[in-house]
Design a protein around this nucleic acid. Structure first.
Ligand SMILES: [Mn+2]
Ligand SMILES: [Mn+2]
Ligand SMILES: [Zn+2]
Ligand SMILES: [Zn+2]
Lengths: 141, 141
DNA sequence: TTGTTACTTTGTAATCATTACAACTTGATG
DNA sequence: CATCAAGTTGTAATGATTACAAAGTAACAA
């Protein structure tokens, strides 16, 4: 999955969201780090480059970007929210050994849950947990 | 979805988990309250009947029951974990208006994500968000 | 029935991610 | 360049969950 940084900036302009230095850095971080980072990882990852960045700003920025629909939040564990620059429908697999999160394609419209007829669905999420191939190869299951 | 309380007790015995008064009450609460309650809701719901119950015990109990596979945890929002006595594969729909969580049947094996070949999948989760039928009827979308 | 003991419960304190707030700073517009 | 609404920052508050140690109890055997 490839995300174009320039088109993200265009989207910010369209939505009248200011292109502050901090916001651009957070967006840049997310486009170059496809590993679904936490707010804390973003904060630490940017600290060398933007030493004055505050964690509150990271949270505020992520919140704005979420509202604008430029990113998505992933709740797999109860104690950590992860952020994804890829807003297309796709599934996530979290390896319980190495903790990595893998993307996978799904045809999410395969479930036309008839029990939900008359419901308005705004958001669809699919995630699996288990052990990834490389951890199995390493005998870490 | 119907869950038999007696068979849950048998499972506890099989797994050598003590049938303490508190654990039985938490299990009973979950079997009679199919609304995917939070730890706090369980605590408050049992308070009249078991005034000495502590919140720590609720958490401890839920943790044991999770380990034993008798219940499932649902992470839809980042700030609340909900618990489900129904451990069969099924999807969840959370209405963003009335906050209720609805179950729906899914054939989860429809996604055989080929990208996950060689991965060991232990846990599959599907949840949607949106507005439920009755909230739409009430014009609350 | 009683005694033993490991497991469980309880209240309190600690943890940790996230949010609230108010003073200060800055991007965008003309 | 001047203006000011919007954004940033550090600190304090919040709230769910966990850690811990003392007190209580379920299970089992005698
Ligand atoms: Mn992803
Ligand atoms: Mn359910
Ligand atoms: Zn792995
Ligand atoms: Zn509703």
């Amino acid at each position: 999955m490839k995300v174009n940084f320039e088109s993200l900036i265009d989207e910010l302009k369209n939505k009248k969201i200011r292109l502050s230095h901090q916001r651009l850095k957070v967006l840049e971080y997310l486009t170059t780090n496809y590993n679904h980072p936490t707010a804390d990882q973003i904060y630490n990852g940017l600290h060398d480059e933007v030493p004055t960045l505050s964690k509150t700003t990271v949270y505020n920025t992520l919140s704005s970007l979420l509202d604008a629909g430029l990113i998505r939040a992933i709740n797999i564990e109860d104690n950590e929210v992860r952020y994804d620059i890829n807003t297309h429908d796709h599934g996530h697999f979290k390896c319980e050994s190495c903790k990595n999160i893998y993307d996978f394609n799904i045809d999410i419209d395969l479930f036309e849950a008839d029990q939900l007829s008359g419901f308005e669905i705004n958001d669809k999420n699919v995630f699996f947990k288990g052990t990834c191939r490389s951890c199995i190869a390493d005998g870490k299951e």
